[in-house]
Structures are given as structure tokens and as C-alpha cells.
């Protein structure tokens, strides 16, 4: 792949490219190789389409930066979906709306609510092009709205006859020394139907849907939080496993493990 230094960058983007290069986000010494890909393969596609490209380049670079730093996100998938939808974006704002929806699909569940709002305004053709499926735009909107655990690209699933027994599993967490968030094995708590994690003095809230998960840092555990129940196994009374149910999913923690397993949905 050609170095960014070798690329012909339009004059209007030169200042921004230089800023990113200075911050080691672009070029040969980039900390985020995908940033080079965005600038080499995607941004050139915008030039013939839109007149004011600098604000778009800034916004998309920032979005990619956040996705690269988000542990559960899949920035490659974000770029892939964005590429798929680009031909149907007629306005710069449509492209930004698409970028926000794609960020949700690429593993940022905190964007679900906003993305669902945007879905209502995106052109049908654009929405259909984002997913590798045969669903119509209206079916996609209805299905994604109806369940946080329906994946349009899942095998033989329909929004109506979606199989609730098919649990989607995320594995999250990890020891901080190995790139995870936890210094100590995490403990689970439940408060107001939300699942919380405590590790040492640090606290997170778990957000999740079919596309990804997020450990949202919080200053404190809610005052009324109760510890997750220990799993009782008659053969192994001290199994050291704890299960929390809330917000439509289950999380399993082990006494000595830094990892958390997320099961969804809960069978009721």
C-alpha cells in the first residue's frame, strides 16, 4: 500500500492530513492503519460527489478514530458498510447519517437509539445496500426496531419468525495488563434492570445488543445495586459462577476470571 506521504492529497485536505500526521494518526507512523485506508480508498471517492470535502473528512476521520479505540467495535466493518452505501448518498448529511448507523452496526450499541431514528429517514435503496441480505427496507426498519437481538444478516432468520432460543454470545472484559479494562476479576451487580460490573474501585454499566457491547464507565455503583446471584450446582456447591439478568440479556462471571460472557436473549 502506498504511504500517505506519497499520495496526492488535495490542497483543501492538506492541512487536515498534516494535523493527523502530526498526531501519528496518518501516514507511515500512523497508530491506526485503517486511517490510511480511509484516506487512500474512501475519501478520494467523495471528491467528485461533494463540494465541501474538508468537514466530511474531519468527521469521518474522527468517527474512525473513535471506532478504533472502542474495544468491541469493528472499524473494518464500518468502512466496508460505508463503502457499500456511498453510491446512494446524495447529500453530505446522508453520508454522516449513514456513518452513524454503520457505527452502531459495527459494534457500538450505545448508538442504537439514535441509529433507529436515522433509519426512518434514510432512502430505501441506501438502507438495503448496507446489509448483505434480501430484506426490504421496511422489513429492515421494522425488524431492527422490534428486537435488539435480530441480525438481518443472520442465517434463515426472519424478524417475525426469529428464533429466540438462538443465543448470541459476546465475550468481553479482560485483564488490563492484556489490554482489557479490569485490574481485578469483575463482580456483577444488578440495579434498575441494568447490569453493572465492579472491578476494584471501578464501575461500569453493560450495554449490549446483537451487534456489540460496551462497558460504560461510571463513577459509582448505584446505591440500590444488589450483587448477582451465585449459580447453584448441586454437584459443585462452590462453582464460583455468578449470573446477572437484566435489560434483556444475561451475563456470566467467574470468581477468578477477568472475562465476562454475555448471553441473549433471556428465555422467559
Amino acid at each position: 500500500m502506498a504511504a500517505v506521504e506519497d499520495l496526492k492529497i488535495p490542497l483543501e485536505l492538506a492541512e487536515l492530513a498534516e494535523e493527523l500526521r502530526r498526531k501519528s494518526l496518518l501516514g507511515n507512523s500512523s497508530r491506526l492503519p485503517l486511517m490510511n485506508q480511509l484516506w487512500q480508498t474512501f475519501l478520494p471517492l467523495l471528491m467528485p460527489r461533494f463540494s465541501a470535502i474538508t468537514p466530511l473528512a474531519e468527521a469521518l476521520s474522527n468517527a474512525l478514530y473513535h471506532l478504533c479505540l472502542s474495544p468491541s467495535a469493528r472499524p473494518e466493518e464500518w468502512l466496508l458498510r460505508l463503502n457499500r452505501g456511498l453510491p446512494d448518498c446524495q447529500q453530505p448529511q446522508t453520508l454522516l447519517d449513514l456513518a452513524e448507523v454503520c457505527a452502531w452496526l459495527a459494534g457500538q450499541p450505545e448508538r442504537r437509539e439514535r441509529a433507529l431514528e436515522i433509519l426512518q429517514t434514510l432512502p430505501d435503496a441506501l438502507l438495503e445496500s448496507v446489509f448483505l441480505s434480501s430484506w426490504s427496507a421496511s422489513a429492515l426498519r421494522a425488524g431492527l426496531q422490534a428486537s435488539a437481538w435480530w441480525h438481518p444478516e443472520g442465517l434463515n432468520q426472519t424478524p417475525a419468525a426469529w428464533d429466540p432460543n438462538r443465543a448470541v454470545v459476546h465475550v468481553m472484559g479482560g485483564f488490563r495488563g492484556w489490554g482489557g479494562p479490569f485490574l481485578f476479576p469483575p463482580r456483577l451487580y444488578l440495579a434498575s434492570e441494568q447490569i453493572w460490573v465492579q472491578s476494584g474501585n471501578e464501575v461500569w454499566q453493560i450495554l449490549a445488543d446483537v451487534f456489540g457491547w460496551k462497558l460504560k464507565r461510571s463513577k459509582y455503583l448505584p446505591g440500590h445495586a444488589v450483587p448477582a446471584q451465585a449459580l447453584s450446582d448441586p454437584d459443585h456447591p462452590a462453582s464460583g459462577l455468578f449470573l446477572a439478568e437484566g435489560n434483556g440479556f444475561q451475563v456470566l462471571a467467574s470468581l477468578n476470571s477477568f472475562k465476562l460472557q454475555l448471553f441473549a436473549p433471556i428465555h422467559r
Binding site: 473528512a57 474522527n62 448529511q93 454522516l96 448508538r111
Partner: peptide, 21 residues
């Protein structure tokens, strides 16, 4: 922003674009 959702388009590159909402 964690109380709502972090702004996707604000970051190290320039000033980015503020979302319409």
C-alpha cells in the same frame, strides 16, 4: 456524553461536524 452518547464526529481531526440534533 456518556450520559447520552459520545459524539461520533468530534475528535482529534479539526473540529469535525456537529450532529444536527
Amino acid at each position: 456524553r456518556q450520559s447520552s452518547v459520545p459524539d461520533l464526529f468530534q475528535g482529534p481531526a479539526g473540529s469535525g461536524l456537529a450532529p444536527r440534533a
